[in-house]
Every structure is written in C-alpha cells, then in structure tokens.
Design a protein around this nucleic acid. Sequence first.
DNA 1: CTGTTAGCGCGTTCAT
DNA 2: ATGAACGCGCTAACAG
Lengths: 325, 325
Amino acid sequence: MPNIKKIAEMAGVSISTVSRVLNNHPYVNEEKRKEILSIIEKLNYSQNSNAIHLVRGKTNVIGVLLPFVNHQYYSAIIEGISKMAAKHHYNIMLCQTGYSPEKEIEVLNMLKMKKLDGVIICSTINGWEKLEKYVKFGPIVTCEETESTSLSSVYIDHYKTFALGMEYLIKHGHTQIGYCIGRNHSINSLNRKRAYLDALSSIQGIPKEEWKFADCFTVEDGTHVVQSLLQMKERPTALLVSCNHIAAGIVRAASKSGLSIPGDLTIIGCDDQQIAEILDITTIAHSSIDVGADAFTLLHDQITKKNEEIKKVELFPKLTERLTT
Amino acid sequence: MPNIKKIAEMAGVSISTVSRVLNNHPYVNEEKRKEILSIIEKLNYSQNSNAIHLVRGKTNVIGVLLPFVNHQYYSAIIEGISKMAAKHHYNIMLCQTGYSPEKEIEVLNMLKMKKLDGVIICSTINGWEKLEKYVKFGPIVTCEETESTSLSSVYIDHYKTFALGMEYLIKHGHTQIGYCIGRNHSINSLNRKRAYLDALSSIQGIPKEEWKFADCFTVEDGTHVVQSLLQMKERPTALLVSCNHIAAGIVRAASKSGLSIPGDLTIIGCDDQQIAEILDITTIAHSSIDVGADAFTLLHDQITKKNEEIKKVELFPKLTERLTT
DNA sequence: CTGTTAGCGCGTTCAT
DNA sequence: ATGAACGCGCTAACAG
C-alpha cells in the first residue's frame, strides 16, 4: 500500500503539499496539484482513515445501541438515524445488546476509546446514572425519557400514551380493562402502569392482577395472552397493548379461537409498525423514524457545536382508530 | 485524557511495560503490573482505539451493506451477522445504500482506507465485476449469487425457489400463473423468471405479459397488484410472489375487495418474514438469520486465516404450506 | 506557495 | 524482566 510519503516522493514534493491537495486546501500550484492527483490515481492511493482519526481525534462514527435489530420499532429508528447520518457524513456502528448491561458498557467504552464520536441509546439497561459517567468522553443521546441533565433525549411520555388509550376505552364504555407491557420495571412500563391506575381510579375501577401481562415482546407472547384469557372466568373487555407485535399475536390467536375482536375483546396497540396497518389494529403511535432522525440531530449538534445545551424533545403519539376497537 | 506515556511516568516505568500489561503480555513483574493497573484505574485510562488500529493495520470492524434497514428480510440478516460478530469481537458498521451505486462504492472505499476489515454486501447494485476490484483491500462476502471467483458468498438459487413454487402450483392444477418480483433485471429476478418460463413451458402454458408484476417491494405494491388484477378480463388463478410483504399487501387488499384467497386466487410468498406466519401465507423460505450468520463466518475466516479459499455456500429454501394455497 | 518538524498514541523489535 | 527507539500514516503549526 502506498502512503502519503510515497506519493510525495514520486511527485517530487513534500508530504505537506500532498496533504494539502488531499484536503482541498488552498495555496497549491495548479500544475503540482494535477501532477499529484494523477499519481494518486495511478497508484490507486487512498488515505488511511485510522491515521486521520488518530490525528484529528474523531472518527465520524456514532454508535447506535439497541436491544434487538430485528424488530420493526428499532429498525425504523435506525432508518431515521441512518438517513440523517448519511446527510452529515457520519457512519453508524450498530450494536445489539440483547438487554445485556455489560454489552452496553462495552459500547460506551468505545466512546471512551475514541472509536465513536457519540452514542445513541435506544433503550438503556444500566439506567441513566451509569450512562452519565460517560458523557465526558462524548455526547450520549437516549430515545427514552430520563431525568438526567447531561443526556439529551427524544422521548415519548408513555404515561400519555396509555392515558390516551384509557381515555378512549373509558369513553367507549369499557370498565374491565387489562394491559400488556414489556419489561415490568422499565421507566416506560412504570409510566404506563401509572396512567392505567390513574384512569381506572377515575372511574372507580378496580385493577385486576390477572389482567396485567408483563414480559410481552413478541407475536408469540400475544398468543399466550389469549390462551390465558380463555381460561379466565371473568375476562377484560379491552386490552391496552404496549406494542403492535403483541397486539398482532392477540388478534391472530383470538380469531383462531373464536374470540371476536372487537366484539368480545377490544384491542389498542402501540407504535407504528406496519403490522398494525395490515391487520387494521387501532394504535397509539408516533413516528419511529422521527425518533431516530431527531436523536441524530441532537447528537450531531452536540458533537459539532461546543457548549451545545442538553435538550429534551418530546414526541406526541396519536391514536389511529381502526378495526380492533 | 491521559495516555500511555502519562501512565508510564506515574508508575515510573517505560511505556513498553505499560503496553505489556495492557495487552496481557508475559514477563512483567507482578508488583509493577499491579501498580500500573491501579494507576490506570485511578486515572480512568483507556487505550486509544485509533492509535491501535493504525499500528495494527486493522479495526475489527466490518461493513454491512444493504439497501434498506427497515425491512425484515435485511434486519434478520443483520441479526445473524450481529450475533456471530459479537462472538468474535467484531463490530458492525451499518450502511444503508437505498440502491445507490455511489453509496456502495463509498463503503468499499472505507475498506480501502482501512476503516473496515471486511465487507458483507447483502444486495449489490454495482455488480460483482466492480466489487472484485476491491478485494485486494480486504475480503468481501455477498449474500447473493455471483459468478465471481474472488468473492465468497452465501446465497439462494432463486431459480430453485420459483421452480419449487411453480411445481407446487402446477401439481395443484394451476395453469394461469403470474408472478411479482422486485428489480426487473437483478440476478435473482432473472433466475426467477427463467424458472417461471421453464415450468410454464413444461405444461405448454403461455406466459401472459399482463400477469407479470415487476418493481414490487412493499405492502402497498401488493395492494396495487390487486387493483390491477381486478381490472383484468382474465385473471391468473395463482401468483408467485418474491417477498411476503408484497404477498401480505395482496392478501389484505384481496380480502377487502371480496377476492377470495385461495378460492379465487392462490398466493405463494417468499422468505421468512413473520408477517407470513401471522397472515398464514404459504411461503418458500430459508432462514435469513442463517444467511447473515454464514456470511459472517465466511468473512471472518477470510480475515483471520490467510490463503483461505473463496467459498460458495448455498442455502436451500423449503415450501411451508399455509392457508393461501 | 512550499517544506520542515513536531506530534497524535500506541505496539514492537532489539538490546540489555 | 525492562527500556530506548523506531514506525504506523497523517495533519498542522511554523518558517520561509
């Protein structure tokens, strides 16, 4: 592999001059520039990124941290990040954590080691207190609500999401309402539960332990929910579901077992996965692509402008009425 | 930021010794090792990746090139790559091309510039002849069939896919068969068409121009197919569809417009997206996750073992019968 | 407009 | 077991 020195030798100039034409700096004789360019062409030379990264102290790479790639909520976020990143000449290092705290820390260390200029965390496992220790190595943006004053974030207040859903259900006469959520103690789940309880108490409803389904993530989990439902003496008339994949599983299993939707069971899902559209599931959603795009923008501002302030961007979900309600 | 020199000074040793403990090299006094480690701890020191990459000439990062992230076929491949990569301590640079040839070349140049140790290309736009020019900078693996002798690949012979589908349809008495494909002139499409024509001619069937739908990628495209279908005097009785998202669009639009499936129209989709399972679409599929995992293995072998030979790994699809046939 | 030089931070012989 | 010195490839400040 030729290097800048080799090019300089062949062109009979110093490496500075070569560096200047490489970086489009002014003040270099037009003939020399052409000569150098032609030699570069002839030798099929390219700069060594690592050397440049070392000397510049940055890589133009950002890390994107998420639990699972193969999940449309996250791949939509990536899509949004990806588009904005391309526009600003940044590359994306994709890191799947599978909810492993160690893996998350590992990536944060890449920030410390200057491999990454910044990090976007879609769903944190360690909690923002631990993340905060890393902001001195580079900006970190989360796609979740945090109380941190050193982490920018774009988020949805899932209290509002579930509140919106509860309001809708109550307005339509439901009092026997259950819900499905993911990780039982995540910030988002806690907010959802609060909204659920608040709304329920407003109509003197009584939360039934049996009607709460946690650890729901996949279509299969939705199927299991229906199985449980079928064995209950008293069933909820409506279910608020934190993710449309679960909702899809419910809808599908219900139709197979003769449970009519929305006749016997009303379903409201969350987020903007295409499956909701295909199955005509009523959903409460914001644009996941926007989450990614906004997150990148926040991160990019912090990387490029110094003393850029920490920002919190809230996105507001809307309820789209379809055929499961 | 402290560097190795600083650590060495504080410990009263040379940078070589520090480097030795950093890299777990033998021959270093146990007391000094502990002392150095404690200083590293105290200063919260980390190595600078870029310096290491520069001196080692490798980054442990591979590029993954695909048209769209937000598409389950590709995100499943990423999932497969991701898992294997984590196992071997490699990171993934994700690059969405949106079918732009320039973007593809851009990433290949990152290989040339030593930013990447290797590249996996899920779906090439430039064609393998152009890709071949880059293998001297690092191994390239494709997830498509190529005739190249310098590119390893894991692939599905889509002639077989469509042949399998045609065989099934013909066995079930269909003679009026159409198909939906993506890019009209991609390698995969050409193979699919060949299989279609071969099978059709084996029963003296006549291909009808009207029943060929190209440029189909999304659920919406499936909807359009149904719209076209509805306006035809003579309709096909079966459709072979190159991707389940299109098939999902067809199934959904058909049910809304009173076209019975499989009564009026039999549908066979392709690939292993979950939507097929949810909508009970008969599909011809291989494991997309395996594609990714195998691709990484091929790439990793080429990166680590020198003189590793070029390999072609063929994956075989199976037909899963469900309710659309 | 151009060249010299000093780093960037680290791994690695080669002596000792 | 340890350290001095060189090199990885490049940018940028400085001098001219």
